[in-house]
Design a protein around this nucleic acid. Structure first.
Lengths: 254, 254
DNA sequence: GTCAAGCATTTGTCCGGACATACTTACGTA
DNA sequence: TACGTAAGTATGTCCGGACAAATGCTTGAC
């Protein structure tokens, strides 16, 4: 792989721009370039034609072309350098820092996750509630715990709290799909989440449910998710078996 | 905290735009808005004035104003809604998905990390080298291991491999600062990294160095970093004591 | 009181343009 | 042959503008 910036730009893969599509033009271009990269037709080290030339070839304006490339920059697929050009730096997309659920990710990875709802109840927040949940006393919430398995093997134990006012959840809906899918179906626009990843030993109960020994290392994740109005829509506290799951992400310099 | 979108926009905090500064205008505005958010002068739920009004007040164009706001959107600090406006959704910035080193993060958090270089050697990649390192046989590399402590307590054990062609490293430079700072000083432009976070039990040696018991859960991180020419500049394999460190991040829906 | 239509508000998308800046290349000179 | 300078290349920044689309509010009709 020749990584030099000074290679001639490779021929641009064929890009169709459909002005009758409701999908924004910049987005169409970004998607097709991304597909060319992930399919190897644009390889790491290849230089993309300059902005002005590409824009002219596609019948777009330079700001629109720049916006399309910016999408790829944000995903860490290309880098730009003033006076030099734009180069492909990566052919692989890892789990990016998108706000997704474990269920979303497993399905995307081609697994068939199965969910067992271990408990599901409606209760009220009071002063004695656990510190995971930062909601005012008196708030009605759903509390539920699920066991997620893949290929018959227990993978994760998921404990969540969702304000009743956010969505009308049920044990049945959680059995069928992931929490985030249920929330989206209820019209919730998930927007931002704070997440904390750490590790600790399995408790006796967790060990039993996850088919591990007591004290075995578990990967832990705590999350507080917000909707597009800044409301807290979910608290989550999960533990995962590290042999079966890890967090993978692409970090990008800004 | 009133989360309604329909609140009147709060008075815009004072923002100075210095056209004589080499810092881009959009960046100056973004930084000052971010500071207002993290300092609580703009609170979650507050609505920011519309783009056109803010641009006029600051003597900027609308695209420049939009670019400033986009920086905040990318960090998950605000959300925009067509026909409604821009609202602050977050007052806290967690360790974002920027490509930084542990040293960078600890310093930013106000800690004074100390580094002990346990080993430092130059060697050549051959077929028997560990699978962490995907470099061609024959590549000259620096291999080194460091123990990082904070407040006298061991925090992490860091094993890294860096191609000799990337930077001329030394034990001394690694003692003084973090690896990424040493690389930047050597003119390396770090751009993208793939990272994998998981957990496992401590080995006997790790337990001794980290003052843990053997088998204690450790948080692990493996990373492959690339420069802006797509070259691999670093492999890292780290283990952390979960009582003293966790990965915190803000996830944003795209 | 309810519903629909129209209008207002605000962001989203796209455009053309200009100048600045960083990097590379080529050429001239010592 | 080496170095410095100028020109070329490409991205970065900023601007003004126009139209589209989504959301909310107001008003009028039923």
């Amino acid at each position: 792989m020749n990584n030099s910036w000074y290679d001639a730009a490779v021929p641009l893969p064929v890009i169709d721009v459909d002005r009758s599509s409701p999908i924004p033009l910049y987005f169409q271009v970004a998607e097709q370039l991304e597909r060319a990269i992930t399919e190897g037709r644009l390889a790491p080290g290849d230089r993309i034609d300059n902005e002005i030339t590409m824009a002219q070839q596609l019948g777009l304006s330079r700001p629109t072309m720049r916006q399309a490339i910016q999408v790829l920059v944000d995903k860490g697929l290309v880098v730009r350098k003033r006076g030099v050009g734009t180069q492909v730096v990566h052919g692989q997309i890892r789990r990016s820092i998108e706000l997704t659920s474990l269920y979303d990710d497993l399905v995307r990875a081609g697994s068939v996750p199965e969910t067992t709802v271990l408990s599901f109840e409606r209760s009220t927040i009071d002063a004695g509630s656990e510190e995971l949940v930062q909601l005012p006393d008196g708030t009605e919430v759903w509390r539920f715990e699920r066991l997620r398995t893949v290929g018959g093997k227990p993978l994760a134990l998921l404990y969540n709290v969702v304000p009743v006012s956010v969505a009308d959840l049920s044990s049945a809906s959680l059995d069928k799909s992931g929490l985030y899918q249920a929330l989206r179906s209820a019209g919730v626009h998930l927007r931002v989440a704070d997440q904390q990843i750490s590790a600790r030993g399995a408790t006796t109960r967790e060990a039993r449910l996850l088919e591990e020994r007591k004290g075995a290392p578990l990967l832990t994740m705590r999350r507080t998710a917000y909707d597009d109005e800044g409301r807290i829509v979910e608290f989550g506290s999960h533990v995962y078996r590290p042999e079966l799951y890890s967090f993978q992400m692409t970090l990008v310099d800004r």
